[in-house]
Lab assay of single mutants.
Amino acid sequence: EDYYQILGVPRNASQKEIKKAYYQLAKKYHPDTNKDDPKAKEKFSQLAEAYEVLSDEVKRKQYDA
């Protein structure tokens, strides 16, 4: 799945936009606030993985290549 789609940001998003999108979605899908939703944990880990790659310039360049 596309990391940009997961975070809901365009491919040319700035680091600030990526961070903002991640924090909004992380708050929304955090397992502690969605105890009754088994998919929230999965969504949250996808968000974390996408953010880890896109927030790191080197990893992001490799991902975009």
Rank of each mutant, 00 (worst) to 15 (best):
L7P: 00
K28C: 08
K43E: 06
L25E: 10
K59I: 04
H30F: 09
L7Y: 00
K35Y: 10
S45Y: 15
A26L: 11
R60E: 01
V9M: 04
R60T: 01
E49L: 14
Y51D: 01
P38W: 06
S14R: 06
Y29Q: 04
I18F: 02
V58M: 11
K27D: 12
L25S: 05
Y63W: 03
Q62H: 14
E17G: 05
K61F: 09
R11P: 05
H30S: 11
L25R: 05
E57H: 07
A48P: 02
A13V: 05
A26C: 09
K35A: 15
Q46A: 12
H30M: 08
D56H: 04
D36Q: 06
K61W: 06
P38T: 11
L47G: 03
A65T: 11
K43W: 08
D32G: 10
K20E: 13
H30T: 06
Y51A: 03
Q24L: 15
K27F: 11
I18S: 00
K43F: 10
D2Y: 06
K16L: 14
K59T: 06
Q5V: 11
L47V: 12
E1L: 13
D36W: 11
S55H: 08
Y3C: 04
Y51C: 03
I6V: 12
Y4H: 02
E42V: 08
D37K: 03
S55G: 14
S55V: 06
K28Y: 09
L47C: 07
E52L: 10
K59L: 12
V9H: 00
S55T: 06
E17C: 09
P38S: 05
A40F: 08
E57W: 09
A21H: 09
K28G: 06
Y29P: 02
K59S: 09
V9G: 00
S14E: 06
P10N: 10
D37T: 03
S45W: 15
K27H: 13
S14N: 10
S45L: 13
Y3K: 03
K43S: 05
G8N: 09
P10M: 07
A13E: 01
R60K: 10
K16A: 15
K61P: 04
D2F: 06
R60H: 02
Y4L: 01
I18Y: 01
V9S: 01
Q15Y: 11
Y29C: 05
A13S: 09
Y3I: 03
G8Q: 11
I18E: 00
Q5D: 10
V9T: 03
A50T: 02
S14W: 03
Y4F: 02
V53P: 00
D32T: 10
D56P: 01
L54H: 00
E42P: 04
A50D: 00
I6R: 11
K59V: 04
H30I: 06
V53A: 03
L7A: 00
Y63C: 02
K35G: 10
A26F: 15
K41D: 10
V58Y: 11
S45G: 13
A21F: 03
Y23M: 15
A50W: 01
E49H: 11
E49I: 14
Y51E: 01
Y51S: 01
E49N: 10
Q5A: 13
L7I: 07
K61C: 08
K19T: 14
Q62D: 12
D56C: 04
A65F: 07
Y51L: 04
Y63M: 02
K59A: 13
Q62C: 09
D64F: 02
A65N: 08
E52N: 11
K35Q: 15
D37H: 04
S14Q: 07
E17D: 15
E1T: 13
K27W: 09
L25A: 12
V58S: 10
V53H: 05
Y3R: 02
P38F: 06
V58P: 04
P31L: 06
K19P: 01
D56K: 02
A21Q: 08
Y23C: 08
K19G: 07
E1R: 15
R60M: 01
D36G: 11
K19F: 11
K43N: 06
S55W: 04
